[in-house]
Design a protein around this nucleic acid. Structure first.
Lengths: 228, 228
DNA sequence: AATTGTGAATACTTTCACAGCT
DNA sequence: AGCTGTGAAAGTATTCACAATT
């Protein structure tokens, strides 16, 4: 049965919406220290997703529950840690030491989850050489060497929009394979690079839309991809 | 069997994924100053969405194009401004003057798009009364009066996770109807409140997943909801 | 008795492909 | 000839509902 040597059949296709929720399940479990077992219904209560959805999401990765009881919290947590790859510390490069960049640097939420901003880049000579929050600001001109020597695969970018594409091109060149983009500009990346956008102004734009067209939506039972 | 009328919708139903893209179309048009007309194909090139998708999205709101030519940029821009409700300035309250909150305050991307952070709240007496970036930090205890007097309908929250639910409850009580949540905690809101979450750590978690399970996805033709 | 795991049904989203307008 | 607008088809995602399991 496993004789077909086509590309990679080892990976059954995981729906991208499932991947989005995984980390949220994990975080919800961190909050649940009181009991040793949790049902999909209880996890649904905490996360706002439906119980059926949680069960289905989890079964993409195996069968972790016990019928009649629920999921063992420690065991499920371990499994999620493994699936998410957060059983290690990731070195992250931050590009752009402006207001937003510096705030992201001080944001504790990253380190708490195993993401360590180990380098900050900027091209402003005024900033280069100084330290911020204990992290040295390096010249982006040296990005390639530093990224390789620090084994950095994830970059967060918070540079001016006009510089974004060029910066990303160089990051990709330097070997970065995942980018979290805070710049309000649609960057293009080659297919093997994973890019996620956090577009704060666009989110406010959406809120403005909903207020303007007052979608008081009579019914809105649970959280949806929408609010995710 | 009929408890609630299902087709009572006064609005024709706009798909939520369409709403997400609207602001991005608008921003793309702001970049296109060179010509007076743009085709769905050109807009697709800029935004990374497919031309068919753009055309379909736009037709939910009317017929703005000219067959054989494309869309008149100024006209479409105007229309989008109107649809999105960004033809006005929105007063926004920011709750939480910590590192992230202060960075959001200085972020120029909001003001550029017509969102003015007119008030900052914190409950720390040390901070209250001081100004940051030209905005006075007010005591969250007075949120209700200030929100009403400033006609604030949108709030951005960047408080510690433990305080988030309580803060939101009070904001809702004060009359806020849209919330942009930066706190890594799943807040519950009543159905008439629009809540959007920006969960930075969760996004890094997703990237970690993709790196770990190296989804080098052989094919990834265009931007998808996924990266949006 | 409670709760999982999962096919089947439903709902939503994107893409296709082409008639029809300019 | 070129491009929009749009039904129909294809692809994803969510919910339902219940047999199986503890």
């Amino acid at each position: 049965m496993t004789m077909t040597t086509e590309k990679e059949t080892n990976q059954k296709k995981i729906p991208s919406m499932t991947v989005r929720r995984l980390f949220l399940y994990y975080r919800a479990l961190l909050e649940s220290k009181d009991t040793s077992v949790i049902s999909s219904e209880e996890l649904a209560e905490i996360t706002g997703f439906s119980a059926a959805q949680i069960r289905k999401d989890l079964t993409y990765f195996g069968q972790f529950g016990t019928p009649g009881r629920g999921y063992n919290i420690d065991q499920l947590k371990q499994k999620l840690i493994q699936i998410l790859g957060v059983d290690r510390e990731w070195n992250v490069a931050l590009v752009g030491a402006g207001n937003l960049g510096r705030a992201l640097l001080t944001y504790q939420g990253f380190k708490q989850q195993g993401f360590k901003v180990s380098t900050v880049f900027d091209k402003d000579k005024e900033k280069v050489g100084k330290s911020y929050h204990g992290v040295l600001i390096s010249d982006f001109a040296h990005a390639k060497e530093i990224i390789k020597s620090h084994d950095i695969r994830i970059a967060i970018i918070a540079v001016p929009a006009v510089a974004a594409q060029e910066v990303v091109d160089q990051l990709v060149e330097a070997g970065v394979s995942a980018i979290l983009n805070f710049v309000p500009y649609r960057i293009k990346v080659p297919p093997h690079i994973k890019l996620l956008n956090i577009d704060m102004a666009a989110e406010l734009g959406r809120l403005s839309y909903y207020l303007t067209n007052d979608v008081v939506l009579a019914k809105m039972p649970e959280l949806k991809e929408d609010t995710l």
